[in-house]
Design a protein around this nucleic acid. Sequence first.
DNA 1: CTAGGGTTAG
Length: 708
Amino acid sequence: MFLTSNVHRAPLHVSVSSLSQLNSQSVFSVKYAVKLLKKLADDGNFKLGKVVHALLIVSNHASEDNVIQNNCLINLYSRCGQLAMARHIFNRLQQRNIVSWSTLMTGYLHNGFTWEVPKLLKDMVSVDNLFPNEYILSTVLSSCSNGGLLHEGQQCHALVLKSGLVFHQYVKNALLSLYTMSSDMEGVLEILKSVPGSSNITDNVVLKGFLDHGYINEALDVFSRMLSEGSVGDKISYVNIFGLCARLKDLKLGQQVHCRMLKSGLQLDVFLSSAVMDMYGKCGEILGARYIFHSYPDHNVVSWTTILAANFQNECFEEALKMFLQMELQNVVPNEYTFAVLLHSCAGLSALGCGKTLHARVEKTGHGTFVVVGNALINMYVRSGHIEAARALFSNMICRDTVTWNLIISGFSHHGLGEDALYMFQDMLAAKEQPSYVTFIGVLLACGHLGRIEEGFYYLQHLMRDFGLEPGLEHYTCVVGLLGKAGKLDEAEKFMRSTPITWDVIAWRTLLNACNVHRNYGLGQKVADHLLQLNPNDVGTYILLSNMHAKVKRWDGVAKMRKLLRERNIKKEPGLSWTEIRNETHMFVSDDTQHPETAQIHEKVRKLLAEIKPLGYIPDTASVLHDVEQEQQEGYLSYHSEKLAVAYALMKTPSQAPIHVIKNLRICDDCHSALKLISKVTMRVIVVRDVNRFHSFQNGSCSCADYW
DNA sequence: CTAGGGTTAG
């Protein structure tokens, strides 16, 4: 074993056998023993450390009053994770100094016993009458921030001020960490303002602190100062700066930083490669993330989870699940974040079977008790249409956070369970959980479902502000939907014109949709014109407009829309529906003839339509453009993808089983009325997830109350 | 002889 000494002399060759030569008094100078012990402590070499300790005892070099050497021994044992031994030596010291205390404290801190460190400080002051120096204070402050000891930390701050050691950089940085830990960013700014001087470490502490607490402009300030001072030097700085780019979703900036990093010659390590992957993933550049993943092949759980997350964030859900299999083959053990990403990927696919398998697994491994996993499970069940499973999970959760509440509230809203959503919101307030920006989107959606206009406005104009939240575009769009659904179209339009905000396509389409449902042709045309001005190639607008023309039987309008679509060569996404039967996903395209059982499926659809005709089903030819761009054909309706999927599921599942179908577009009017009646004649629950919401068809009606 | 900053979920 080679130990390289940091002093100017030839490297020491130290091994157990060569140490036996040291068993004579002449070789063991005190100075040499200290150097040796320091080296062994730095390397965490417990085995050799013990040998040296033993030799010191045997050779009568271990005396209780050799303070420096004993401090080295305390350091050695605590650095090797042998805290009990370190404490034992400390207890037996005849003489000790402030370094003995400092070393012991560091031992407690690094071995996770953070709460013991302030107690040691108390003992040190009261028993030995020593006043803390900069070493002691920075260690105690670090212990307080690591252990979340806010109260003790504040007391230390008082000591720091008393001693005048704030101006010591180590102490200042430890204080900054403490204030960051307690989310007191104003306190951080205060310290930065009053204490001059900053190192790379200061920059990194505050950069990460600002980032974690949403102080983005302050983080950018730090970054630009680092650039101007040329101090973007080491890996940790880059990790934090990539975090900033990821947060900003600024791909250009991220690429520039990446270039700078490459030019500076810094080599990737597992932290840095994860940070770069994460940046590319969050900035929507999945290829960049994959490139980094392959260029630094020494992966751990975190870097694996990062690449899985990058795939998930870029909607490569299947790829994320596939890569997990590779991860398992490499014997990398997943953690709670890994499971959260996987469950969210299942949610993206509505892959219930896969989600359930993962659910069983996290229950078995114990990961199910982590909030991130619980949240991901709720999301997975919500998004695969099993709102009751989500409800049960929610009520069994041991600890919940804001996200948990947001998920269940918006889950209920998307499933048309407005009452449940609002009750949950009340529960959330009763549980003293702070509602967030996202919470109110779910709440306003619920108000929309229930037609509670006044209540919605109360939340928007008063309650949100009571919680210090400024309503945003999403909330205002919910209000447009709320007014529109209640048929107050002119008010909705007035609201849009009078609210000083830049409305997006989604908001205008919400109004257009309301005009469509309420057959307000005049306003609808106006809104559609505006929408087409914003985006002349927007397929969604053409479809809604055409449906509207059809509803008021303006066939010339329908024909015009089709002509426009053809002229502008606008291709519509094909309508797809899929359903999972016994862990297998079956995909259907409208007018599908690829499926091996096409003949039987079509026969089933015809039978179902014949069965519901006596209940009042009239094929609605106007909806056709929803799924095809060609001229409408007689009988074409029968082959809409969701009808095929439902028919197939009816053929292949037991008579009591609920049916779940996922669709990539909005469900069309005709399928909607057909499925309502099919749910009645077959006595089945049919849940369809379309792009916007869930439709739960049961006994002839739908949870969306025929408005979507 | 003793002290500080880094990656993954929404």
